[in-house]
């Protein structure tokens, strides 16, 4: 056994040498702790959920594009108005309306249905022209460019109920937290005119060959290009269309109301998007895939 001692001591010295080198010979890097996990339902309160709904209602959801006090293009939702009580209150009444064909059993379900299937019940006077209030001009908010998730729609409903002062019946989300500020800031630039139309919600009010199903609240964009050059003296067709997008109230087309179209596109649009839109309005029959290059790099 005594023969083993030198070998043991040698082995220990080698190992301590290595461990010493690792400890003292190289710089100490402390690894970052594991990232904090996504927020779970337990962490979010109803107040926060309502606040998120508020944000979505006025932002990502693009609801106020039509549901505003100036345009009268859609019923006012969050407060009492000529349309009646706030929607949170009147929702419960709607399902008793004889014209109502949907499946909702209570106010919350009605609101949800209105979001995903707007034509289930169209408030008198707000339907698409010529449909006798059976088809709504509103897009389904869980699809297309708006694309709200269930959790986000829940937040909107919670916001509307909260604004109406009724009991909030929406359950707090289980699973991943709804979009926080970070997601809203992440804006992608539209690659072509069609995407641009989607992104800025033009289809809600306008028609155009690139828009599948447009509204008639604003002028038909497939037609205005032909006359744009002669509308205002001193402005070329491009300049006029650009002005109409950035400053919509500068010239109001006959038969349409002022103050309907949002006037903040100058901030939210990139120059390339504006150029694409002007180009598309001016040449409505051009194929979409030819669009982007014509304006790039100017």
């Amino acid at each position: 056994m005594r023969d083993l001692f030198p070998i043991l001591i040698f082995s220990l010295l080698v190992m301590f040498g290595y461990a010493g080198f690792v400890t003292f010979g190289i710089p100490l890097i402390v690894p970052a702790p594991p990232p904090v996990e996504e927020k779970l339902s337990g962490d979010i309160t109803m107040e926060q959920y309502v606040a998120i709904g508020d944000k979505i209602f006025h932002g990502k959801g693009t609801c106020t594009l039509c549901h505003n006090t100036t345009g009268h293009r859609a019923p006012i939702l969050e407060m009492a108005s000529s349309d009646g009580e706030p929607v949170g209150v009147r929702a419960a009444e709607r399902i008793k309306d004889p014209r109502y064909q949907g499946e909702a059993m209570n106010g919350e379900e009605y609101l949800h249905e209105s979001l995903v299937d707007p034509s289930a019940f169209v408030v008198a006077g707000y339907g698409k022209t010529g449909t006798n209030d059976t088809v709504s001009p509103m897009p389904s908010v869980n699809k297309g460019a708006i694309g709200l998730s269930d959790v986000e729609m829940g937040a909107v409903i919670a916001y509307l109920q909260s604004a109406a002062g009724v009991d909030i019946t929406v359950a707090l989300p289980t699973g991943e937290a709804p979009a926080d500020d970070g997601e809203e800031e992440e804006v992608t630039v539209a690659a072509n005119a069609q995407e641009a139309f989607d992104k800025f919600g033009c289809s809600a009010c306008h028609m155009h060959p690139l828009i599948d199903e447009g509204g008639d609240i604003g002028p038909d964009l497939g037609k205005v290009g032909a006359t744009a050059g002669s509308r205002v003296i001193g402005l070329t067709a491009e300049q006029f269309i650009a002005q109409s997008i950035i400053k919509p109230n500068a010239v109001i087309a006959e038969g349409f109301d002022a103050d309907t179209m949002p006037d903040d596109f100058a901030e939210s649009m990139t120059v390339s998007e504006l150029n694409m839109l002007v180009d598309a309005v001016l040449h409505p029959d051009k194929k979409p895939d030819q669009e982007p290059d014509s304006t790039e790099g100017e």
């Binding site: 290595y18 461990a19 690792v22 400890t23 190289i26 100490l28 890097i29 690894p31 702790p33």
Partner: peptide
């Protein structure tokens, strides 16, 4: 968490 190198050594 990931332990540091000296700890691992």
């Amino acid at each position: 968490f990931t332990p540091t190198l000296p700890f691992a050594a």
